[in-house]
Design a protein around this nucleic acid. Structure first.
Lengths: 229, 229
DNA sequence: CAGTGGTCTAGACCACTGA
DNA sequence: CAGTGGTCTAGACCACTGT
């Protein structure tokens, strides 16, 4: 019966949930714990590091480790690619391009993306359907200064998200959730009523400091984003 | 010039973002990388493990490590305690208890929380204010079968969230975001108009398999939940 | 079966920071 | 200054899982 970092982690966690180690109180140091569990210090270290990442405990050199008073619990959401999100539900995915137009970046967009000058952007409007029903409306702007090849891409076949992922694999992003109202136009796309509450996701992405794209995704009424932690 | 796990991690990441290692392609194994960077295998392992946690790469025994095709990007949200959320903005926090009543658990609640029988629950309604303005409306049910002492607690002084955290430090939770409409009653509490779109957070929590509480938090119109990743 | 990642060890040195 | 966590090492064995 040797202690693994998992067993150490779960034992410490249960000591905390059971109240043996109360919030705010301090926990034995790594050497002592390694001794208690009969394992190497590195094993305890990994267990404790993960607990700290999870926001359960707080560690400081010299001061030691304490159980957090106000647990900073974090939830992790998978940021889904629409196609996968729909197909995972066992529904058939369909995509359609509604509009594609080169524009000057409006001021609000330049501000959002921290664009230097009001350059050209490609404005795309798309719809995503699940089993034929409207699922998500996509309103997207792509920075043509960074991605001039976007103008030549055929977005009626490949969705802009998938195109972007394969063009710029990884980037920094800011994501923002809010509640909005469907206006008449949106209600038309989503086949709902104007005035219906809609869940909106906005995402801005940058690559090496340069704006890539800003997108506003609006889900059909009733959409929920769920996770466990 | 020795390689730390951070330097290894960021070097690998940049090789991926720069396109040296394309999505879907496979990465040298740990021993080779350790050799390349002139460090121990454990160092490479930690770098790679974190990249895998971040959803950048995918690792399988024997098959090796590959760059993910469809990056499962994840966003982490801090699940805030209202008080902290408000005070962090430099605003003054005020709390008030609107209603406190022992009820039989309605069916929908029993279903949500997987309650065995329709037991007694404590139904609380509270308001949270920032600088005197309505910030969040809280509609909460606490399982009295698990927490009979809740009935005796004085929730006009301590908010139920803070009380719960100090009573049951850690628990499993399901959290759910959605968009809703303010009804007349809610509009009154939040001093907005009926029909305004409101951002809603629902959270159910369990402790060792038993239902603890279900809460529906409704933010004043315009609220946004933002994060970076 | 053999290659790859998963984990553990015992020891070491370092970096930070509270007393 | 001294205690605690942060990280690295060199080596070992194990657990999975493609081939």
């Amino acid at each position: 019966m040797k202690a693994t970092y998992r067993s150490v982690k779960s034992d410490i966690l249960s000591k905390i949930t059971k109240g043996d180690w109360a919030p705010g109180s301090s926990i034995p140091n790594e050497v002592e714990l390694a001794d208690m569990y009969g394992c190497a210090r590195a094993t305890v270290n990994r267990a404790m590091r993960e607990l700290a990442d999870d926001g359960i405990i707080e560690r400081r050199r010299k001061a030691g480790t304490r159980v957090r008073e106000a647990p900073v619990r974090q939830a992790r959401f998978d940021i889904p690619i629409v196609r996968g999100e729909i197909e995972e539900k066992g529904a058939e995915y369909r995509y359609s391009l509604v509009k594609s137009l080169v524009e000057d970046a409006p001021d609000w967009l330049a501000a959002r993306l921290k664009l230097n000058a009001n350059g050209k952007v490609l404005h795309l409007v798309c719809m995503h359907y699940a089993d034929g029903d409207p699922y998500q409306h996509e309103d997207r702007w792509i920075n043509l200064a960074l991605l001039p090849q976007a103008e030549a891409a055929n977005f009626s076949v490949v969705g802009p998200n998938e195109w972007l992922v394969s063009t710029i694999p990884f980037s920094d992003a800011e994501i923002c959730f809010s509640a909005g109202l469907a206006d008449k136009k949106l209600a038309g796309y989503l086949t709902c009523n104007a005035g219906d509450p809609v869940f909106t996701v906005e995402r801005s992405t940058w690559w090496e400091g340069q704006a890539v794209t800003y997108v506003r995704l609006t889900y059909r009424p009733g959409h929920r984003l769920t996770t466990r932690y």
